[in-house]
């Protein structure tokens, strides 16, 4: 087949909603875009373990401790599914790690904000996992098969996380004055960063159009953001908490909530590395990787030794 007919075949598959699989021909740009997106997504899961991991040893009771541990462990699992999906596009995990550590690969900026109190475990689950679900449910139908299948597994667990987070918030908002204050404070700090999780506005999102054509992306940033706000404002009412946006109000005509201006200056600065925890997060990941090097080397050396020994034994036996 010529490149032209390969391209035609690919386009046709995408149009007919037949998933693209690792062995199928795909345009270079499609592969690159996917690899960038999936590895960025995988990195987000792994870096995302840090702000919540920060409270594992300080969880307020044994049940919460167990639930939080299991939650952060789930995120590691998500990272694993996603790295595996990315590997099918021809990149190794070591390569991807190297790109994360050098700053070449990005991860979701939300994790560059600090988790300061226990209530942040509620707010992160409720808002951050909540926003992640909004983003990720449409990805379950992404045109690339391994990515779509990984997202199906991820989404199931994310909705569980979202409910657990909401439940922490609910307990706090039904609690004492100081607990209510903890909950409101966490909402104040996580609200805007969560809304920014949907990425730049559509008129400033250069990759969106191509991703939509490739059916990697299905719904635009602004539309997802609006959906999230509409749902979350109602949930905040149940909690008796107030999102920190004085312009937030129901618009009868549009059937959506209007909201105030987003601080895109802050967004781009956090992306560029100037967020409150960018340095710490990267440093923690690098430290884990560097201090784990001797372990990975030894595991490799041992498995080589063992297979050599087994070969010798089977050679003797033969």
């Amino acid at each position: 087949m010529t490149v032209d007919s390969l391209q035609e075949h690919f386009d046709d598959k995408v149009k007919r909603e037949v998933t693209i699989e690792p062995r199928d021909w795909m345009p270079d740009d499609y592969r690159k875009t996917l690899l960038r997106q999936i590895s960025q997504h995988a990195h987000s899961e792994i870096v995302g373990m840090l702000p919540e991991g920060n409270w594992i040893t300080r969880a307020p009771n044994l049940r919460r401790k167990a639930v939080l541990l299991a939650k952060v462990q789930d995120e590691a699992g998500h990272g694993l599914y996603l790295y595996s999906a990315a590997e099918t596009l021809g990149s190794s995990r070591d390569e991807m790690m190297e790109q994360l550590h050098s700053g070449k690969a990005k991860y979701s900026s939300i994790f560059n904000y600090p988790s300061l109190t226990w209530a942040d475990m509620g707010a992160i689950g409720w808002l951050v996992d909540g926003a992640a679900i909004m983003n990720q449910v449409p990805l379950c139908r992404a045109s690339y098969g391994p990515y779509a299948r990984a997202m199906v597994r991820v989404c199931k667990e994310e909705s569980f996380h979202q409910r657990q987070g909401f439940e922490i918030m609910l307990t706090l908002s039904n609690g004492t004055e100081v607990q209510k204050k903890l909950a409101q404070d966490a909402l104040n700090r996580w609200w805007w960063p969560s809304i920014m999780m949907f990425g730049p506005p559509d008129d400033n999102s250069p990759n969106t159009e191509q991703s939509m054509r490739w059916r990697i992306k299905r719904i635009s940033n602004d539309e997802l953001r609006q959906r999230f706000i509409d749902v979350t404002v109602e949930q905040a009412k149940i909690l008796g908490l107030t999102p920190p946006d004085k312009d937030l109000k129901w618009n009868e005509a549009t059937g959506h909530y209007d909201f105030g201006a987003i601080n895109w200056d802050e967004f781009w600065n956090v992306v560029k590395g100037n967020g409150p925890c960018n340095k710490e997060r990267l440093e923690a990941r690098k430290k884990a990787w560097e201090e784990g090097e001797w372990v990975r080397e030894a595991a490799l050396a041992y498995s080589k030794k063992r297979s050599e020994r087994n070969n010798k034994i089977s050679a003797k036996a033969a």
Partner: peptide, 24 residues
């Protein structure tokens, strides 16, 4: 559980957390 998020290998991060959860 102090290892959670800081393990030397992602698979072992998960395994260690599993074990921590059992103990808990």
């Amino acid at each position: 559980s102090e290892w959670c998020g800081h393990g030397p290998i992602l698979e072992q991060d998960i395994a260690a957390t599993n074990i921590a959860l059992d103990h808990l």
